[in-house]
Design a protein around this nucleic acid. Sequence first.
RNA 1: GGCCCGUUCGUCUAUCGGUUAGGACACCAGGUUUUCAACCUGGGAAGAGGGGUUCGACUCCCCUACGGGCUGCCA
Length: 491
Amino acid sequence: MNPSLPSHGFRKVNAPMPAAEPKPSAPSGVVTRFAPSPTGYLHIGGARTALFNWLFARGRNGTFLLRIEDTDRERSTPEATAAILKGLAWLGLDWDGEVVSQFDRRHRHAEVALEMLARGHAYKCFSTPEEIEAFREAARAAGRSTLFLSPWRDADPASHPDAPYVIRLKAPRQGATVIEDAVQGTVTFRNDQLDDMVCLRADGTPTYMLAVVVDDHDMGVTHVIRGDDHLTNAARQTQVYHAMGWRVPVWAHIPLIHGPDGKKLSKRHGAVGLEEYQVMGYPAAGMRNYLARLGWAHGDAEFFSDAEARAWFDLEGIGRAPARLDFRKLENLCGQHIAATPDAELLPEIEAFLEAAGRPALLAAQKDGLARALYSLKDRAKTFPELLEKAHFVLAHRPFVPDEAAAKALDPVSRGILRELTPHLRNGSWSREALEEVVTRVAGAHGIGLGKIAGSLRAALAGRTISPSVFDMMLVIGREETLARLQDATA
RNA sequence: GGCCCGUUCGUCUAUCGGUUAGGACACCAGGUUUUCAACCUGGGAAGAGGGGUUCGACUCCCCUACGGGCUGCCA
């Protein structure tokens, strides 16, 4: 096998290598692949397919390959390929070896087509597209099957005209083709329902149907995990495996993802491209967790780590019904992952989010402040934008203007109380216990609760009515900055 | 039209012939609480419909309905 380099300059983009994990068990020989066609963004459903393949291979110490199915030259674009690689990189799905361009392997595909021809498993068909279309139209009108049966299937080569032709598979007419699918079970197709598919087009280029089989075989793919829109195709492809005498891989056709309304996922559902999820500020770990649970289950496990997912993932746990997208659950899971992620890992992710969202990068001082404040922020946010909003107190430079709600909390009475609080803060010790004691005492002296004084204090310190605990904020920004902000707010 | 696949709370799902059909998200009520987030307690919420098989069906079979896929010299 000789996986050629991609024809477009997309090798520059590389998937990040996830932190080294202890390799589980012995090599299993499992080889999976993700094979998207570069005709647009990375679809959320495609992302899940990639994740399943990745989990299956990585959990078994196997190999996960990436192949770009770019044989359709009309619709394939280098931009789409770049978007796919970028999306996979963000999701944290790393692949083994070079990216394979299917188009670059076209000569190998043609070679196989010719071999089938030589062996009598394929034949030259001289029917023109016009003839075939006319036949189909007539069949449709008459309510008959539109399956095209080529008159050239058993024609004497001596009768072949000097005209363009395609190479069709000489598929069996009798009997049935049986798919043993790890998800769908045994699926039987009568052979008279399957036509002689085109393997090589008139221009000598291979069709997808031929190319997948040749590539999967040459790449040593043992398990084909893909959308169940390919279930019927699997029957046709099986015929090619049989014709070539190749070992048929384990099939696993997974149900597609549907929109919240249960209909096929399309643009009108919004957020169909994976990159949109990064821009919305969902952490990749939460995304992986959510996507893994969509159509797959491991008992009652809902929130789990990548290591657990790899250890648990299996084909048997995949459901057979299409799953709908549920943003609430996604958010819930993402919140849990943000809370569980170590600060040192969270910070770069937040910076990557800012860049992806086209927002200004963090200044050194902001980054430093955020790092110190993270402990008080990460368990109160479900997405990065939410976290950043709550981090306003550590990101903003004073003097800053409070937002409308915060300004309201800084009424004259409240400002008076804050003024009175100031000297106590100037002189007391700067620990959580001491701060709580002082603030509570001053509130008590005015006959108000902690809630009331905390409200105005929050407004003064954060310029917002939503933030981490006032004590955490004071601890993070320190005594001097706290006093300065109180000064600003009460002046 | 033909062929193929699917159908458990609103959503994701557990169950692999015998359960008061479980969990999670969401929702509702109450509690806790310095905001937000979170947390605690409780609640409502499901086997598409109809036939079989069986002592017993969510689970097995058939039909119907409804979704979906394929039916391309697209992938």
